[in-house]
């Protein structure tokens, strides 16, 4: 099991130069886009296209890293790299785990944003 996601607002804010406004905007955007991003990952996994899977994993990796989720980002990175080499090991389980992580992060962020 991955370590549970805890929002490290201080770290995120530091990267954003302490700008609360941008922080709030990023949170908002993540929550708006998360359903679409998850769906895109599911579609990519179902298509069997390694390049598509690599790209969607890459996008999620970036999103999770934006919120300082190192563990989630590492999960996406592994999938991205395997897809890049065309050697995805147990793809279904990886995709499921990544989707679960995204949902978890989204839930935490949603709570934080008060939505």
């Amino acid at each position: 099991m991955l370590t549970p996601f805890i929002i490290d607002k201080a770290a995120i804010l530091e990267r954003l130069g302490g700008d609360e406004e941008i922080y709030a905007m990023m949170l908002e955007m993540f929550l708006n886009d998360v359903a679409g991003n998850s769906a895109a990952l599911r579609t990519a996994a179902a298509s069997g296209q390694a390049a598509q899977l690599q790209r969607e994993a890459h996008t999620l990796k970036g999103l999770l890293a934006t919120f300082s989720d190192d563990a989630g980002s590492a999960l996406a990175y592994t999938l991205e790299q395997q897809a890049r080499r065309g050697e995805v090991v147990d793809g279904e389980a990886q995709v499921t785990a990544l989707l679960a992580r995204i949902d978890e992060v989204a839930a935490v962020l949603r709570q934080a944003s008060g939505r």
Binding site: I22, M25, M26, F30, D33, T59, G62
Partner: peptide, 8 residues
């Protein structure tokens, strides 16, 4: 290509 990055 990512909305959130463009916005940021």
């Amino acid at each position: 290509d990512s909305d959130i990055n463009l916005t940021l």
